[in-house]
Each structure stands twice: as structure tokens, then as C-alpha cells.
């Protein structure tokens, strides 16, 4: 994590509750350690985030996930590391895309009911952070703490 000065957090579909909690937590941790953090997500995910953190205490920069992909492909932006949150096949597809288009060190944050089989499907270069968490964010938070310590 030492070489990660610019970090991207990509949110998947916000239907699994632990995601928002852990994204706010991780963004705050990374910001506090002096890193430049951007959180990307769908319109719905970003609205949830902005309502929860209305004054931007935990998340300073946000962007639409598809615009983020476009800007990386067009080499307008890049990041040193990327945390791709996923609990479904679509989330995995976004993470695989990030792995292909960006040189960022990729962390695949895998959670939800199907965390383990989903983790087995990750066959691109990524450090996996896996917890079968749906409502309780603590197991996922603990695993993230070990990575960013």
C-alpha cells in the first residue's frame, strides 16, 4: 500500500448493505493516511453515499463509474491502486475491465452471500479480500484493515 498515493474505490450495485459502510470506512482511512481518494459508482450508489456523508467528511471526490472507465481508457486519469467492490457477476465484470485497462494495483473486495464462488471466478491479477458478509460489515472491515495496515 506504500506506493498507493491515488486510490480509486469502485462500488458495485448498492443492494448489499455492507458495501456502503465499508466504502465510507475505507475512504476515510485512506484520506486520513494522506492519500487522494476517488469513489466511483452508479447514480444510485453515489446518491446513497452523498446522503450518508452529506458534508463530505469521509468521501471528497466522486464520479460516475462509466465515466471513470471512459476517462481511464482515454488516459485522462489513472490511479495507483483500485479497490473494486463486488458481490455479483456484473461487479466482477467491472473489476476485470479495470484490470485490463489500468495499471493500478487491483484489490478485489468480494462480499455477499456468494462471496466464495465469486472469488473463485476471479482469474485476473488482483489481491482478493473476501468475506461472506451481507449485513455485518465487521468481517470485511477486518480483512481490509489487514491489507491497508
Amino acid at each position: 500500500m506504500d506506493e498507493c498515493n491515488t486510490c480509486l474505490l469502485i462500488m458495485g450495485c448498492p443492494e448489499v448493505p455492507v458495501q456502503m459502510s465499508v466504502v465510507l470506512y475505507l475512504s476515510n482511512k485512506l484520506n486520513k493516511s494522506g492519500r487522494d481518494v476517488t469513489v466511483a459508482g452508479t447514480d444510485a450508489a453515489l446518491k446513497l453515499l452523498k446522503v450518508a456523508d452529506i458534508e463530505g467528511h469521509y468521501v471528497e471526490k466522486t464520479m460516475d463509474v462509466d465515466q471513470c472507465i471512459a476517462d481511464i481508457v482515454e488516459k485522462k486519469i489513472n490511479f495507483d491502486c483500485c479497490f473494486a467492490f463486488m458481490h455479483s457477476d456484473a461487479g466482477l465484470t467491472y473489476a476485470a475491465t479495470m484490470s485490463a485497462i489500468s495499471s493500478a494495483k487491483l484489490y478485489a473486495v468480494i462480499f455477499g452471500k456468494n462471496a466464495e464462488p465469486l472469488s473463485d471466478s476471479v482469474d485476473f491479477p488482483a489481491e482478493k479480500i473476501v468475506a461472506k458478509a451481507v449485513h455485518n460489515p465487521v468481517p470485511l472491515k477486518s480483512k481490509i484493515d489487514r491489507v491497508i495496515a
Partner: peptide, 29 residues
């Protein structure tokens, strides 16, 4: 539109039509 996908990403041609994948985070492919 920038194709989102797990390599190899297939794109098809059928007559004048181009077939491709479209991914939405909350709805799948």
C-alpha cells in the same frame, strides 16, 4: 460506450447488425 467485460470480449456480426454485451452494475449483462 466503452465495452465492459471479462476478456475475451466477443462481438458479433449478423448481417448488418452488430451484437455486443452491455453491462449494468445492478442488472447484469
Amino acid at each position: 460506450y466503452y465495452i465492459i467485460g471479462v476478456p475475451p470480449v466477443a462481438m458479433g456480426v449478423r448481417g448488418k447488425e452488430m451484437l455486443f454485451t452491455f453491462v449494468k452494475p445492478c442488472h447484469g449483462t
